[in-house]
Design a protein around this nucleic acid. Structure first.
Length: 266
DNA sequence: AATGGGACCTGCGCGC
DNA sequence: TGCGCGCAGGTCCCAT
């Protein structure tokens, strides 16, 4: 579900509704999603603690908890959070002292919750490349240099550049008029610059629209994101390109479906 | 180094 | 209506 813009939207919601709240009780309905520590310990250590701050790194959400602990949330594909009253489909419920509730939702159970005294040593965190916002144009060009991998696969490789997933990789490549199948090293300086700018623009636009609700994603209050309506290629295979009218094509790249305009994107 | 496949999971929409 | 299949916004791990 969530790429950087969706996670950023959730982060802002948490800042508004959850920071400063005291966790009275944690209910773990699906123990599978709690990766560390053991569920009993997880619940015990959170009870009575206040949420101090929310951080985001790429698609990772990090809640700083009173007493020097961090609740690290990776939503993976189908995770999302709602704030309000307890949800019967929740996998984990964080009930606050004012009776309000933060629900961790995750139909496919692929997401992960961790409670740790720090998050920097988490293997996934350590291997995370810079976000597009932390990368200069030169830094971006250096990533492409000498890499034969398909440009779309590179954009989604979190070790190299983090926060971009299947939707925004497809959209940025369309905006830059570059085929997702091109080897990264084949991009000219001009193309690399155009792609770099497109990535930043698309992510900022998506944040502005509070994410895309192609599937189950909702913000904390249950509202859909507004970015769906602005997607030009993602999920539009077989339909016509808004620019040239050609039929959009779907190919498989790195095990993910990738939609693009064979006429506009060279 | 790069790519392809499978694994982890559930649930939805589609065609028959 | 019911069933099987393909597919889904992520990441890891293995084989080649």
């Amino acid at each position: 579900m969530p790429e950087l813009p969706e996670v950023e939207t959730i982060k802002r919601g948490l800042e508004k509704f959850v920071v400063g709240k005291k966790i009275a009780k944690v209910e773990v309905l699906s123990p599978k999603v709690v990766k560390e520590p053991a569920v009993k310990e997880f619940v015990r250590r959170l009870a009575g603690k206040t949420v101090k701050q929310v951080l985001r790194k790429a698609k990772l959400l990090i809640l700083k908890i009173e007493g020097g602990e961090y609740l690290v949330v990776h939503l993976r594909i189908s995770g999302w959070l709602t704030y309000g009253s307890p949800d019967k489909k929740a996998r984990v419920r964080f009930i606050f002292s004012d009776k309000s509730c933060l629900n961790y939702m995750d139909s496919r159970l692929l997401g992960e919750l961790r409670l740790r005294s720090e998050f920097e040593s988490l293997p996934f965190f350590k291997k995370l490349g810079p976000e597009p916002f932390e990368l200069t144009l030169e830094g971006f060009k250096n990533l492409l240099k000498s890499r034969k991998t398909k440009i779309k696969a590179l954009l989604m490789d979190q070790h190299l550049i983090s926060g971009i997933g299947n939707i925004y990789a497809a959209e940025a490549l369309f905006a830059a008029k570059i085929s997702p199948l091109r080897p990264a090293l084949s991009l000219t300086d001009k193309e690399a610059q155009s792609l770099y700018k497109s990535i930043i623009n698309i992510l900022n636009q998506a944040i502005k629209y509070k994410g895309a609700s192609v599937d189950t994603y909702r913000d904390l209050q249950g509202n859909k994101g507004g970015m769906d309506k602005h997607l030009k290629v993602y999920g539009r295979q077989g339909q016509r390109c808004f620019l040239c009218g050609a039929v959009l094509k779907k190919v498989n790249i790195g095990g993910r479906s990738s939609v693009y305009c064979p006429k506009c994107q060279k």
